[in-house]
Amino acid sequence: MATRLHPLHGLWALTNRELAKWYKVPVILIISLIQPIVWLAFFGKSMNFAAMFTSGLNIPGLNIPKQVIDEIASEVLKANFGTTDYFSFLAVGMLSFITLFTSLQSGMSIVWDRRLGGVLSKLLTTPVPRGNIIMAKVLNSMIRSLVQSTIVLIIAILLGMRLNPSLNPLDILGAYAALALMSMGFASLFVTLALRSTSWESQMAIMNLLNMPLMFASNSFYPVKSMPWWLKPVAIVNPLTYVNDINRQLLLGITGGQSLLLDYAYLIAFAVIFSVIGIVLSWRYLSEA
């Protein structure tokens, strides 16, 4: 066999293997979309801050004109959320929510490969570069995240999310890039954590332990500045905060917590550091086993 193998050969075949398990079973896709949609439809639609302020607020003894109350309400909302439209604010948070959940699951598939039969042991006898075994899982998680985010975005728009009127395709591309970078970092981290684990249950436990805290220690539901002092540092290192900051600036056109440049720089560093660690550790682990 004189065929020269490309360093990335097998990457797409392996990614496609993972994707096939997903698109062949649409039930799993639908189930995974229920959570963010429930948040949007139930929580997002009911937690209507604008209506709370403006629907007939009247303080006895003080004769405040309705116009003043409306003005105050919109200023308070803007100061906190950057917009008077909390639903759209939350919808952006839901895009990172679905991406986070999808990425956390990537660790499961490597446990699965090892536990049930020797899919992994077979892959190791083929000339596929070791790093591609891991990168296929990361790539799979990125693709799934983006597809699911798109579905959540469409549903949010149907439910009343208002996008920036001057939105251009580059903004959408930017939003996807942010989600993809976050997915890459989290998926790499979780695949790496799962490398030595043979227990499906412990992987589940780690996922369940981390997903909610990661969500609530970010600006997905509320701004960082309304958090207690001890939670703020967590939110500041949490990649979700940066993704939401980018997406609110790009998709909603509101002023962000920091510059886009800083947001992207942080996400790129997050994605690159964890994927490099993932590739290096998995390469070493898979070749030494």
């Binding site: 097998g10 797409w12 899919v119």
Partner: peptide
């Protein structure tokens, strides 16, 4: 041909063969 069953159970026999073929380039 390792001792364990190594085919991916969620895929068909054909898909498994095509996957392994791709890994050999």
């Amino acid at each position: 041909v390792p001792q364990e069953y190594t085919a991916d159970e969620d895929l068909t026999g054909w898909e498994n063969l095509m996957l392994i073929a791709a890994l050999y380039g």
